[in-house]
């Protein structure tokens, strides 16, 4: 394998119903840094049906090149068809690095591609860097339940691949009118060649909690004592117009659904304000919320680790503090004549 032949940083662009997944834009941001450091180009790989119009967005977010596979057979994501396209592209243009969002689709595709190439694949990366002169990708991820971080290298194979968690990298501010090169590609693939068929797509109608999109998160932990105690969190969230977050222990205790879990095995969130109430601040929780704009911790143990991860902390009993906070907030709002309190 001649490493000289491999250049450029690629991002697999995840698209659904004509919408680019936010993580793909974040990866363009991260990939841009790597490409600049290597003095190489940043490319997106876009696979789907009727998706050409999306390329302009990708350029605005930092891509220099977009490889496009626009064929009816790519209407739905399927491992086999997408993998074939990506393998085709990779074998033809030989990237040095390919990044995927660590979503179910990204992981599925990356695992299959890595096996066929074959090459190494680092999962759930949270930090990325590259060695300027060798192009060696330094992909770091939490290991052993998040208690430690490990940097994973792939020295002997190209391309180097990693899936990267959503919300940990930053998308660049889009530059209106930024242009790049579109390279249209095509593979001969008949429907009969694909062994899986999507029979139906079922959208869940019930509104899902999307804590990763919230501006205000009020998260509660085991310190609330019980499902009843946890109602306090709901009350504060309601008052502030935020959504409820939770530690894993709370979710495991069944006080709220898993969709509310913040942290390594839950969701990574970046709200403007994050309340951590009765949460001890285990590393696995912190990694999921440390990038919030303003972190406020309430805990009755002044030694709790959460106080090291917050901007402001109150040492006290949640059952004393929070009700005062709820009252105080309501009063403050009327005082300041903020009329349209968000209805929840």
């Amino acid at each position: 394998m001649d490493f000289q032949d491999y250049k450029d940083v690629w991002v697999f662009i995840e698209e659904k119903d004509g919408v680019i997944a936010p993580v793909s834009l974040e990866l363009l941001g991260a990939g841009r840094k790597l490409a600049d450091k290597r003095g190489s180009e940043l490319a997106g790989v876009l696979i789907g049906e009727n998706i050409k119009h999306l390329t302009s967005t990708l350029f605005e977010y930092g891509a220099d090149i977009v490889y496009v596979y626009d064929q009816p057979i790519f209407k739905h994501y399927r491992t086999e068809s997408f993998m074939k396209a990506l393998l085709h592209c990779s074998n033809k243009y030989k990237p040095e690095i390919i990044l995927y969002g660590a979503t179910s689709t990204g992981k599925d595709l990356a695992s299959a591609v890595a096996t066929d190439l074959p090459t190494g694949l680092t999962a759930d990366t949270t930090e990325l860097d590259v060695e300027e002169d060798t192009g060696l990708l330094l992909a770091s991820r939490p290991a052993f339940g998040g208690n430690i971080m490990a940097t994973i290298l792939c020295k002997k194979y190209r391309p180097q691949m990693a899936t990267v968690r959503a919300k940990v990298m930053k998308a660049l501010a889009p530059v209106q009118g930024r242009k790049g090169t579109v390279i249209e590609e095509h593979i001969d693939l008949a429907e009969e060649d694909i062994r899986t068929k999507v029979l139906e797509i079922v959208k869940e109608t019930t509104k899902k909690v999307r804590i990763d999109e919230a501006d205000i998160i009020v998260a509660g932990g085991k310190g609330l004592g019980s499902a009843e105690g946890f109602q306090l969190i709901h009350r504060l969230a309601e008052t502030l117009g935020g959504v409820v977050g939770a530690s894993r222990d709370v979710v495991e205790a069944g006080w709220v659904a898993h969709a509310h879990q913040v942290g390594q095995t839950g969701v990574t969130v970046t709200p403007k304000i994050y309340f951590a109430i009765g949460i001890s601040g285990a590393i696995q929780h912190i990694v999921g919320m440390k990038n919030a704009g303003l972190i406020i911790a309430i805990n009755n143990d002044s030694e709790a680790a959460i106080f090291e991860a917050c901007h402001y902390g109150i040492v006290g009993d949640a059952f004393e503090i929070v009700p005062i906070l709820i009252e105080g907030f309501k009063n403050a709002l009327t005082r300041e004549e903020v009329s349209h309190v968000r209805e929840v």
Partner: peptide, 15 residues
Amino acid sequence: PTIVSKVWTPSKPEG
């Protein structure tokens, strides 16, 4: 193909 080159404990936030 992958090797673990370095293991470290995540730095603690300042507080």
